[in-house]
């Protein structure tokens, strides 16, 4: 330590602090930027447009936009009440539910897909979920678009629950309690006080669920298959194009997914999620 000039010593120490912290942080940022730059350099605009012009890729894009949006809406729909219950109430077995919610996050994707497949086709006392849905409601699931949505939802919802739980944890429950003394039922306190305060969290949960659904691949491949023009989403397009040796198209679709993710993140941040503040 420079005893003669402690001011300079502190300034040097601060500079070192930012250098070390910034240097470590920069490795990750640099990795992401380099990955994107490598993808951009690998392909060309003409290759990109050629890939986009393929009817299979267009169909995959449409199904991706549709399935991700439905999965994200369902995830928020389920994640909001579940996150609220986990945040606000202590009840016996809460830790079990808390752990179960995280299982789709830690489960290997292929195992999740396989589990969905087994769930729908496992005969239970002569009854089978897939047959019941197909014959009873005329709504078969496996190897069709609902399987894509369900596979995406299974993982995205876990993230949505986590996000909503943190949102409600950060909100003072006191306002809901006061609302109850003013005449609200628990339901009214939730709808009128808690939910409006959670609006930013809901947008964040939707964003995370949508982005998570966009990146889903393993469970979709196992549970919905990779049938072109039927159950193909952009993540499976990358796999299909790679499997037939069409690296250019695979990279072009990858870039399209990056662009989609960026657009969704930016739009939702502009809508006021506050993620960037």
């Amino acid at each position: 330590m420079d005893a003669k000039n402690p001011w300079r010593s502190r300034r040097t120490s601060d500079a070192l602090f930012f250098l070390v912290m910034g240097g470590i942080s920069a490795t990750f940022i640099l990795l992401i930027v380099l990955l994107l730059v490598a993808d951009v350099m690998f392909t060309s605009p003409s290759e990109f447009y050629r890939a986009l012009a393929k009817p299979e890729i267009r169909a995959a894009l449409q199904l991706t936009l549709f399935s991700c949006t439905v999965a994200a809406i369902l995830s928020v729909w389920v994640g909001t009440p579940l996150g609220y219950l986990l945040s606000r109430y202590s009840f016996r077995g809460r830790w079990v539910i808390d752990t179960l919610v995280d299982i789709p996050i830690v489960l290997p994707p292929l195992v999740l897909g396989l589990s969905l497949l087994i769930l729908f086709h496992q005969p239970i006392a002569g009854w089978q979920l897939e047959s019941a849905l197909r014959d009873g409601l005329g709504f078969p699931v496996t190897y069709r678009w609902p399987a894509v949505v369900l596979a995406q939802f299974s993982v995205a919802c876990a993230f949505s629950v986590r996000t909503m739980r943190v949102t409600f944890d950060q909100m003072n429950p006191r306002a809901e309690e006061v609302a109850r003394t003013l005449g609200c039922t628990r339901g009214q306190a939730f709808w009128r006080i808690a939910l409006p305060q959670a609006s930013r969290g809901i947008v964040t949960a939707f964003t995370i669920a949508w982005a998570r659904a966009l990146g889903e691949f393993g469970p979709i491949m196992v549970f919905a298959g990779t049938t072109r023009m039927r159950t193909e989403v952009l993540s499976t397009s990358v796999f299909l194009e790679l499997s037939i040796g069409n690296l250019d198209a695979a990279v072009a679709v990858s870039l399209l997914m990056v662009m989609l993710a960026v657009v969704v993140l930016v739009v939702l941040r502009v809508l006021g999620t506050g993620l960037n503040s």
Partner: peptide
Amino acid sequence: GYVPQDLALFPK
């Protein structure tokens, strides 16, 4: 009628 210490006004 209840006024808590932190007031707990409704933010929205």
